[in-house]
């Protein structure tokens, strides 16, 4: 597991059924591109998060394939429908096989 990886997500705590909400996510990760060289001139191996998914109560919201051209500390913003109360789950997939997960509950007013 890459060092110091920490996911952050911003989801409203409540919404009305059928509402559209904005979700922001940020995860601390170097996103080593595989293009850089170290002081000795050796290529630093690629080490990135290559996929992100967001689901709500088992239904998919967005599925993103990420490449080395995504900036350090990857940031994503998108909109989701909230048909009912439930839980958003967020998953990031690291090149090294690690999976970082977090979840946020949302109540329906």
């Amino acid at each position: 597991m890459a060092k110091g990886v920490k996911p952050r997500v911003k989801v409203p705590k409540t919404a009305a059924a059928g509402d559209t909400i904005t979700i922001k996510t940020l995860i601390s990760h170097k996103m080593e591109s595989g293009q850089r060289k170290d002081d000795e001139g050796n290529v630093i191996p690629r080490s990135i998060i290559n996929r992100f998914t967001c689901d709500f109560n088992g239904e998919n919201v967005i599925d993103v394939t990420m490449e080395p051209a995504i900036s350090t500390n990857p940031y994503l913003e998108f909109e989701a429908l909230v048909p009912e109360a439930g839980e958003f789950t967020f998953t990031w997939y690291d090149d090294d096989g690690s999976i970082y997960e977090t979840a946020k509950k949302i109540a329906v007013e």
Partner: peptide
């Protein structure tokens, strides 16, 4: 604060 990547380090 969410958009500011510096806040990741504040949390750490």
């Amino acid at each position: 604060d969410f958009d500011n990547p510096g806040m990741i380090f504040v949390e750490q």
